[in-house]
Structures are given as structure tokens and as C-alpha cells.
Design a protein around this nucleic acid. Structure first.
Length: 480
RNA sequence: GGUCUCAUCGUCUAACGGUUAGGACACCAGGUUUUCAUCCUGGCAAUCGGAGUUCGAUUCUCCGUGAGAUCACCA
């Protein structure tokens, strides 16, 4: 029985937006922490001043918050190992670096960038891999902080275990004297994350595949520092929809907040991102967030990269929308009503919402799907012309059908304009006109809504009310 | 180029070495007394190639091939 306290972290650098790949790494780390009653830590890796983007840190916080990926310690809320921003931890890195200098495992880099380039160039000319340690100075100067500080590496082969990829190994040729502290006084990621993970007692390092090539060098640092190894888990990349490249901004990768603004539910994003590279081994596709927390396991994470499929995301969003209660859905669509609905009552809006819940794929669909309930739609006769069945009928016949409908529906009492009464009347109309529902009902539906799709006709007419329904039929008749 | 990793339908994936290789998305065809983007039914569609181990390989081994990652004073 292990008494390991589970502490995972998400450590983004504030250099831009939050794409799905980054969110997935955060999500999986969050799952591991939450299912074990552990802690999830957010740490900002802002050691590259040049690449830092203004407002990015807030944006990351906002994106995680919007998805409900909550952290227990972080730059915004503090915690026992504060600060959680690397730029505020410079003294800590210097202290750890000093240990390495004192033990002879770190030294000042005496070369100029030009000299380094010359080394690289000659290695390339000789078709050899460039290794800094081949040029390690015999008597480096004392480190005064104005030059890079490098690890005096101990080249050796490594075998290590990765929770996702299994047993991995490399030879000594990949170990090099990597930079620990840059000449600007900031540590490199390579050094800082190891120090922080140790200080913050991180149990699982869950990160993307791009770091796997550096892993042997990290192991070398762990040894030089005399640290115990945490558990490593490497996430495969999420790839762009076309091509085989890692998903990046250039491939049209969107920020997660954009998906939310486009009407995707947070639980959809979590379900979808989780299912991109993980499944529980059953045929279940739709998971709630608590289910995912309970069932997630690193050893079922896929080893290979997955492609982001928007069609599947859309389908999944529809599934999650249908799972919501009407009241819950109502809360969430506040910003998605058509402009025409601003003055509508809550009662009417809820009624309309109930009708369309089963047809929404994204919350954004609400506007086109419901606009005609709140405002007079604009007639678009091309909808009739483009309808395979309706286009066959001469105008006169269309007019007759609408006229018959107008009269029949006019017989229904205003107070009893219920879906049942409307349907009864519509059924009678099929008999009296001898027309197929595919024709008659399509026609009525089109002229009362002028929308590409709408809920069941009986409900649609009932919600519109007798007066409006008849007025729109009448307008269409006159228009023909 | 060196190093490392990966490889099942178009896509996401399932399959203690024994299955007619399963499910989902997408697509196609029907159906549900309206459209439809809901719902139901059906269909199409995959183990990268070659050796080896084994009675038997999607699964284990090796060799190819393909793809990805990385080789920064970026993370």
C-alpha cells in the first residue's frame, strides 16, 4: 500500500492561447488528482520574458475556470509552496544551482554565441552530432551570473518507466551539458521545472510528448540534485484535422474559449478532449465529468496521436445538450437568444426552448431555430422552389392548400389552440385535401416559419398561437 | 542526418495469443402521418509490408516502410 500523496500540476507558459492540446494535458492531470483526492496545482512558467504575451496568464485562468478545471494551489490563490510564478522564484533556482556548483556539477559557460555557432558548424561539417560537452572547458571561470550556467553532465544510458508509453530507454549520446540558468538570470524550463516539482512535492509529471527527448537529461539533473523520481506520464499529441502535424495555431487550432463562445458546453469539451486518446474499454461514448474523474486511468491513455474531429465534437455536444434539464439549459442559453427575443417572457422562451432542445447541436443554433417565434420572418420563396416535392406543384395548388389550411385552422378556438387540437385539424386537412403530409405539412411549416428547420408542426403552430399562425398563412396566400 | 516514439475502418477507438476484428462519428439507403440537424433500422468501411515464434498472431520478436517528436541562453 502506497501512502503517496497525489499532487499533479499544470504548468503552462503564458505565451498565447489555450488550445485543446494544452487543455487535455491539464485535464488528465486534473483527473488524476481529483480521483485520488489529491491536489491539482497551477504553476506559471514565465521564464522567457521575450515570448511572454500580455494577458495570457489571465486567459489561461479564465479558460480553466470556464471548463471547471479547478486548482487547489496557484498564482491567483496562493498555497503552501508559493509563489507559483517562476519569475518570482529566481532566488530558489539560484540556491539549487549553487548546490550543483558546489558539488562540481555545474559550471559557467565561457563561450560567446559566435564561438558556439562555430562548434555547431564544424560538427555539422563533420557529420557528427553536436554535443556541448565535447567542448567543455577544463578550467571554467567562476560563475558570476553574467553567463549561462551549465550542467556538468554524466553521460550514461537510461531506462525509465512512463505510465503511458511503458519502459523507455536511451543511450549516453543524448546526454549533454544543458543550460540551467540563462545569462539573463532566469532559469531554463529544463532546470526550473525540476526544482519546482521537487519543492512542490509533485507526484506525477504529466506532459506532452515534446519533452520526451529531453527526459534523459532531466534524469541526469535529478541524479545530480539527489532527488527522488516522480511518476512520469507522456501524453500523445493532438493533431490537426488535415495533415499529420501536431495541432498548432497555424492549423486553425482554436482556443477553448472560442468553442464555449460558439455554443459548446464545457462538459462536451471535457468529454470530447478526454475521449481523444482515452477510453474506459467499454462502448460508452458519453461521460459526465464525475464519471470521467472516477473512471480515468493513465494506463488506458492512447500512445499515438489523435486527430481533432469537429463533426464528432458537434454530435457529442448535441448529446450533452439533450442531457440537460430545461431549467439548466435555459440558464446556459442566456447569451444565445435571437435579438428578437429580448422582450419575450421567460415563460415563452422556456416553452420555445423545450421544443428545440432535441434539435440543438450548439447553443448558437438557438437563434436561427427560434427567431420566427419572436419576430415576423421574412418570406423566402426559394425555400419552396428548392423543395423537391413542393417545387412540383403549380402555384394555384399551393394557394388552394394554404387557403384550406387557413380556413380549417380558423375553426379551432383561440383558447384551445393546443398541439392536440392543431394536430387533429391537420389530420383532417390531409383527408379533405387528399394531400400527402410531406407536401401539406412542409408547405405550412415553411410559410409560418421561413426557417430551414423547426420543431414539430403541431407544437410550432400552437406556440405561435392562432392569430399569428393565421396571419402568416394569409400573408403567404396574398404573396402567391 | 543522430536519437526517441508511434502504427486497427476516412476519423476517435475496442478486442487475457483463439471474435464472422466490436462500437461511435462521418457517409449512403430506408423508416418514424411535416421540414430536419432529433430519433429508429440497415449498409459501406480497417489490423502498413515481410519474415520468425506458436496448433493458432491485430496481439509476442526481428527487419523494413510510413508518420511524429526532438537535437535553442523556447517551453
Amino acid at each position: 500500500m502506497s501512502d503517496l500523496i497525489i499532487r499533479t500540476r499544470f504548468a503552462p507558459s503564458p505565451t498565447g492561447f489555450m488550445h485543446v492540446g494544452g487543455i487535455r494535458t491539464a485535464l488528465f492531470a486534473w483527473f488524476v488528482a481529483r480521483q485520488a483526492n489529491g491536489a491539482f496545482i497551477l504553476r506559471l512558467e514565465d521564464t522567457d520574458q521575450k515570448r511572454e504575451v500580455e494577458g495570457s496568464a489571465d486567459h489561461i485562468l479564465k479558460a480553466l475556470g470556464a471548463l471547471g478545471i479547478t486548482h487547489d494551489e496557484g498564482p491567483d490563490i496562493g498555497g503552501p509552496y508559493a509563489p507559483y510564478k517562476q519569475s518570482e522564484r529566481l532566488e530558489i533556482y539560484k540556491a539549487w544551482a549553487k548546490k550543483l556548483i558546489d558539488s562540481g556539477r555545474a559550471y559557467a559557460d565561457p563561450y560567446t554565441p559566435a564561438e558556439l555557432d562555430a562548434f555547431r558548424e564544424s560538427a555539422r561539417a563533420n557529420k557528427k552530432a553536436f554535443l556541448y560537452r565535447d567542448h567543455r572547458p577544463e578550467t571554467p571561470p567562476a560563475w558570476d551570473g553574467s553567463t549561462p550556467l551549465r550542467l556538468r553532465s554524466d553521460p550514461k544510458a537510461y531506462n525509465w518507466h512512463d505510465e503511458v508509453l511503458g519502459d523507455l530507454s536511451t543511450g549516453p549520446e543524448v546526454i549533454d551539458d544543458i543550460i540551467l540558468i540563462k545569462s539573463d538570470g532566469f532559469p531554463t524550463y529544463n532546470f526550473a521545472h525540476i526544482v519546482d516539482d521537487a519543492e512542490m512535492k509533485i507526484s506525477h509529471i504529466i506532459r506532452g510528448q515534446e519533452f520526451i527527448a529531453s527526459q534523459p537529461n532531466y534524469l541526469n539533473i535529478y541524479e545530480a540534485l539527489g532527488l527522488d523520481l516522480p511518476i512520469f506520464a507522456t501524453m500523445p499529441h493532438i493533431m490537426a484535422e488535415s495533415g499529420n502535424k501536431k495541432l498548432g495555431k497555424r492549423d486553425g487550432a482554436k482556443d477553448v474559449l472560442d468553442y464555449l463562445n460558439d455554443g459548446y458546453l464545457p462538459e462536451t469539451m471535457i468529454n470530447f478532449i478526454a475521449s481523444l486518446g482515452w477510453n474506459d474499454g467499454t462502448e460508452q461514448e458519453i461521460f459526465t465529468v464525475p464519471e470521467l474523474i472516477k473512471k480515468f486511468s493513465l494506463d488506458r491513455v492512447q500512445k499515438s496521436g489523435a486527430r481533432f474531429d469537429e463533426k464528432r465534437l458537434e454530435w457529442m455536444n448535441g448529446q450533452h445538450i439533450r442531457l440537460l434539464t430545461l431549467d439548466d439549459l435555459y440558464e446556459r442559453v442566456t447569451d444565445f437568444w435571437p435579438a428578437s427575443a429580448v422582450t419575450a417572457s421567460e415563460e415563452l422562451k422556456k416553452h420555445v426552448l423545450a421544443l428545440v432542445q432535441d434539435r440543438l447541436k450548439t447553443l448558437k443554433d438557438l437563434a436561427i431555430l427560434t427567431d420566427y417565434f419572436f419576430a415576423e420572418p421574412k418570406a423566402d420563396w426559394s425555400m419552396i422552389e428548392n423543395n423537391k416535392q413542393l417545387a412540383q406543384l403549380p402555384k394555384g395548388e399551393l394557394k388552394q392548400l394554404l387557403q384550406a389550411s387557413f380556413e380549417a385552422l380558423g375553426e379551432v378556438s383561440t383558447s384551445d389552440f393546443t398541439p392536440e387540437a392543431v394536430q387533429e385539424t391537420l389530420n383532417q386537412l390531409l383527408v379533405t385535401t387528399g394531400q400527402k403530409p410531406g407536401i401539406l405539412f412542409s408547405l405550412i411549416r415553411t410559410v409560418v416559419s421561413w426557417a430551414p428547420f423547426s420543431p414539430a408542426l403541431d407544437h410550432t403552430l400552437s406556440v405561435l398561437g392562432k392569430e399569428t399562425s393565421l396571419a402568416r398563412l394569409d400573408a403567404a396566400i396574398k404573396d402567391l
